[in-house]
Design a protein around this nucleic acid. Structure first.
Length: 367
DNA sequence: TATTCGTGGGT
DNA sequence: TACCCAAGAAT
C-alpha cells in the first residue's frame, strides 16, 4: 500500500498468522532475565531500560538494578543519587529519575501495585504509549498495542506500509494494524513475538526472510521490497561543542566534583568542573576564569593539557581539553564537593565522558 | 511537529 | 571515518 492508503486486511489470514508467530516465539524466544515471570515492576524496569537500548547492554544493568532495588518500595525510598549510580553508563538518565518519580507515585497512590488500566498507567512519568502497552500486555495480558521500532519495521514489511516511521504521526497507523492482528488469547506473547521477530529475523539491513515463520504472510517479501521498508527519513548531523574540564585535588587528595543542573543534558550527574570554551588555544585561561567567578574556587591549574577527550552524543559532540590542578580553598556547596577517589567511584554517577577523563588521569590510558 | 536526551556496537 | 542503529518520552 502507498502512504495514506487504508490498511488492506480483508484477505489477511489473521488466525494462521497468530498461530505461526506464537509457535515460533514459544520455540525460539531468548531466555531473558525479565521473562522469568510477569512481575509488573520487573517488566516496567526492563521496558524503561530497553528504550533505545540494546538487550545485551541492558542485561547486566537489569540484574544489578533489581538486586539493589528488589521492590517498588525499595526504589521509592532510595536516594536519587544511588538510582543514578545504578544507571551510570546506560544513558538517557531522565529515564532513571522519571522511573523513580513514577514508582514513588505507585507506592503512595496505588499502595505499591502497578495500575492495570491504560488511563492510569499512561499518567506515570516516563510511561509513553509504547511502555504503557508493553506493561499492560506483557504483565497483565491486556490486548493493547506496544508499538516500538521493531513493530513498525516488522509490520511495515508484513503489510507494506510506506508511511515514514520517523514521523510521530505514523505510530497510530501501526497501532491500528496491531489492534487488528493481536491475539486476545495471548497478547503478552503476541507483542513480545513481533518485537522478537524484529530483533532476530526481520532485522533492519538484511532480514533473514528464509528463516521467517510468517514469510507466507509478508507482502513485502512477496513483492521483493523487504529491504526498501520501513521508510525512515534520516536526521541531520550533530553540532560540536568545545569544553575545558579540570581535575582538581585538595591537599588531602580529595577530588572536586560538580553536580549538573536538574534539567537538560546529563541532568543531576556529577562531573569535573568544566565550561564551554571559545578556543582550544585559550582553554586553560577560560576554565580558570570560570571556576573563579562561578564557584569562587581558589586553585592552581597546571600548564599544558593532560589529554583530549572526544565524546559523541546522539545530537552533539564534545571536544574536551582536560587539565589538572590543586585546590587551595573553595566554599562547600550542595552542587560542589571535595570527595575521596573511592567515594567518587562507588557513590557518584559520572557521564561516560568524565569516566574516561578519570580513567586517563589514573592510568594514563588512551581511549 | 521537531528537537532533545546517551551509549556502545555494527557496517 | 562516518554514519546508522536499539523494546521512546518529554517538551
Amino acid at each position: 500500500m502507498r502512504q495514506n492508503d487504508e490498511l488492506q486486511l480483508d484477505k489477511f489470514d489473521t488466525k494462521t498468522f497468530q498461530k505461526e508467530l506464537l509457535g515460533w516465539f514459544e520455540a525460539e524466544q531468548r531466555d531473558l532475565p525479565w521473562r522469568k515471570d510477569q512481575d509488573p515492576y520487573k517488566v516496567w524496569v526492563s521496558e524503561i531500560m530497553l528504550q533505545q537500548t540494546r538487550v545485551d547492554t541492558v542485561i547486566p544493568y537489569f540484574h544489578r538494578f533489581i538486586e539493589k532495588f528488589p521492590t517498588i518500595k525499595d526504589l521509592a525510598e532510595a536516594e536519587e543519587d544511588s538510582v543514578l549510580k545504578a544507571w551510570e553508563g546506560l544513558g538517557y538518565y531522565s529515564r532513571a529519575r522519571n522511573l523513580q518519580t513514577a514508582v514513588k507515585e505507585v507506592h503512595e497512590k496505588y499502595d505499591g501495585v502497578v495500575p492495570n488500566t491504560l488511563n492510569e498507567i499512561s499518567k506515570l512519568k516516563g510511561v509513553g504509549p509504547y511502555t504503557a502497552g508493553a506493561i499492560l500486555s506483557i504483565a497483565y495480558d491486556v490486548p493493547e498495542p506496544a508499538v516500538d521500532g521493531n513493530v513498525m519495521r516488522v509490520m511495515s514489511r508484513i503489510l507494506t506500509i510506506w508511511d515514514d516511521i520517523a514521523k510521530p504521526s505514523s505510530r497510530k497507523v501501526f497501532e491500528k494494524a496491531i489492534r487488528a492482528l493481536i491475539s486476545h488469547e495471548n497478547p503478552s506473547y503476541f507483542n513480545q513475538a513481533v518485537m522478537e521477530l524484529g530483533a532476530l529475523i526481520c532485522t533492519p539491513t538484511s532480514p533473514s526472510c528464509l528463516l521467517c515463520p510468517v514469510r507466507e504472510h509478508c507482502q513485502a517479501f512477496a513483492e521483493g521490497v523487504q529491504t526498501e521498508l520501513p521508510v525512515k527519513t534520516k536526521k541531520k548531523s550533530t553540532k560540536k561543542v568545545k569544553l575545558g574540564a579540570v581535575i582538581l585535588k585538595d591537599k588531602e587528595g580529595n577530588v572536586l566534583l560538580h553536580k549538573r543542573p536538574s534539567e537538560g543534558l546529563l541532568a543531576n550527574l556529577w562531573e569535573f568542573p568544566n565550561c564551554e570554551i571559545s578556543s582550544l588555544r585559550y582553554g586553560k585561561k577560560q576554565v580558570e576564569a570560570y571556576i573563579k567567578e562561578e564557584y569562587n574556587i581558589d586553585a592552581t591549574i597546571e600548564n599544558g593539557i593532560l589529554t583530549k577527550i572526544d565524546h559523541v552524543f546522539s545530537h552533539l559532540t564534545w571536544n574536551v581539553e582536560v587539565y589538572i590542578g590543586e585546590v587551595h580553598h573553595f566554599a562547600q556547596q550542595e552542587d560542589l564537593r571535595a570527595i575521596s577517589a573511592q567515594q567518587l567511584e562507588e557513590e557518584y554517577a559520572l557521564p561516560v565522558s568524565h569516566q574516561k577523563m578519570w580513567k586517563y588521569y589514573n592510568e594514563g590510558k588512551q581511549s
